[in-house]
Design a protein around this nucleic acid. Sequence first.
DNA 1: AATAAATCGTACCGTACGGTACGGTTCTGT
DNA 2: ACAGAACCGTACCGTACGGTACGATTTATT
Lengths: 216, 216
Amino acid sequence: MTARISDDEFTPRQSAVLECALELLVAGGEKALTTAGVARAASCSKESLYKWFGDRDGLLAAMIAYQASKVRAFSDDGGMMDAARFRAHLVDFAHDLLQVLAGDVSLALNRLAIGQASREGNRLARLLIERGRRRIDSRACALLEAGMRRGLIRYEDRDDVYHTLYGLIVRDLHVRMLLGEEGARRPIHFADQAERAVERFLALFAAREEERAGGI
Amino acid sequence: MTARISDDEFTPRQSAVLECALELLVAGGEKALTTAGVARAASCSKESLYKWFGDRDGLLAAMIAYQASKVRAFSDDGGMMDAARFRAHLVDFAHDLLQVLAGDVSLALNRLAIGQASREGNRLARLLIERGRRRIDSRACALLEAGMRRGLIRYEDRDDVYHTLYGLIVRDLHVRMLLGEEGARRPIHFADQAERAVERFLALFAAREEERAGGI
DNA sequence: AATAAATCGTACCGTACGGTACGGTTCTGT
DNA sequence: ACAGAACCGTACCGTACGGTACGATTTATT
């Protein structure tokens, strides 16, 4: 049984080891992530690795859990919000999303999970979605619901509109980055892209002026 | 040197072997794609594999080239096109795109290329983009340019508008399918999704009635 | 300080895989 | 029909990796 992963607390030593493992993964992909390699890079024994994480798969799962635990969940909104602030929040979200997806570690972990996705169970992929994606989803959905409540946008199916926002922001960039396309990772353009995506999103879903004031 | 891949003609025997290899890859992922396994499944000798494809990487490249060669390039349009036909062409494109991306072999090859993307050079990933993606891109761009020429849509940057169309159609579905998410591959919903995506695309880029008739 | 637990480094084992070699067999060209 | 090439099946080699064992060393506990 592959060690406990429900308890995502790691000792400092274990965290340091996982950090080294992530570095190895980022540098050389899954092929470079050997147990002996991690042990050497982290100056620990293979025996400790197996004791802490069970087996290699447990190590991979721990790396995902560890990385996810480093990303703090946002809880923006709260204050009052007019159309301009709502738009700014959307742009912030878009920019953050692009930056997260373009991160070295994020790309490496996604490549890892996708590479293993054909295996039965899909443990890693499910973990990645559960731990990494849910946060982003919930942040965006909270934002969208706030916009809806204040009459700034109109929609029927929240998930549908969220996925549309996602598509407008990310397009095929994520897959292109996962494939290692050089030109794809130009964080310089992220700000522009975030603006344009939100522009189009609001063009599709913003409530019209006359609706913004009151009822239906 | 990894055999010639620029000449994408394979003998019938080689094609049969590559077919078996693709089956193996789809069934069990990269891990299941061993030279011995391919030889056994295809009833050929490992020596022939190495003679034909050079080494394992050459085999992978040949699989991509072979699969790409099976997909015939569209050359739709040609006839005259009004707004309704243009819309129908867009929906067709969207539907085809979703169906292609959701294909077993497509997903398996993308997983393979992504899993190897961290290696230097990125040969497989570049091959996949070059051979697989370009066709889709060119079909869509031809369609968009035809729509532009006939005054049905208006845009400034063709690539930008194409990527927006792509994002509206695919959203995060491709990555979710690559991660093996069960709910993602529901071809039943593809038709709906294609309709909705085109709807939104036209809401963003369709020329207004008064523009459709004549000049600026 | 003494004892127990945890950890390190290294060595070891079994297996699986990439790649090669070779004898026997089928296909091809003349 | 015959020679030569292509090909199949199998066996073989070296290596690399996952996983285990163990003595030496460090750390924690009382």
